[in-house]
Amino acid sequence: MNATPCIIKLSHISFAYPGSDVDVLNNLDLTLCQGEKIGLIAPNGSGKTTLFHTIMGLSQPRQGTIELLGKPMRTPKDFEAIRTQIGLLFQDADDQLFCPTVLDDVAFGPLNLGFSKEEAKNTALETIHELGLSGIRDSVTHRLSGGQKRLVALAAVLAMRPKALLLDEPTAGLDMDVKETLINILNSLDISMMIISHEFDFIHEVTHKIYSMENGKILTDEEVHVHQHEHVHRHGRHPHKH
């Protein structure tokens, strides 16, 4: 019997920033399998972004093994070959959009993958169309609104047709409308993804499992009991019992 193939498999990963004794990631294990959609809710500074960067080979762990698409990642060269198949959406879209126009930016990845100019342009146009961004195709990226920048950055990642997506706080600073658009887009995608967010509602809408992080380790579904409730009553801000 064949188990569902794993796209990302981390075992016993530990990571500490240079000059620090504290392990941001501490003997961490994590798997993301085909078709899985995992949400990651955890406090600031718990190492979520570091985790993503470690998966992509941007940060070198102190110990542990990383397996991407079934292949062990040992050297930076191993990561180079596999990296383009996993799309990482950065927290700040300005970090990601550096080409002059939206079309240029979305085509940047496909061109790096070795597509011909014509193919790259077509792939980019297709992705731009799928995300409903055709209207701003030739716009200059730095003049876009925050929401548009985020969607263009997502288009840039999706244009590479990745096998998995890692989204680092994709909803930060977005208004309700863009958030709604983002939820629809993510739900229409048939690829594995892992999403870092602080917003429970959003995570709940787009993922099947919710994990958390504590002391540099992942806490899985069974250990996490995330819940949120809002209520209004006349006691206002004064201490009260339920």
Binding site: D95, Q96, D104, N112, L113, V157
Partner: peptide, 21 residues
Amino acid sequence: RAQRVYRAMVCRGFRGRFRTL
């Protein structure tokens, strides 16, 4: 910022050569 931009480029397969449409 420069470091993050570079990392984002690397993630999209940048290997030191620019290709344009």
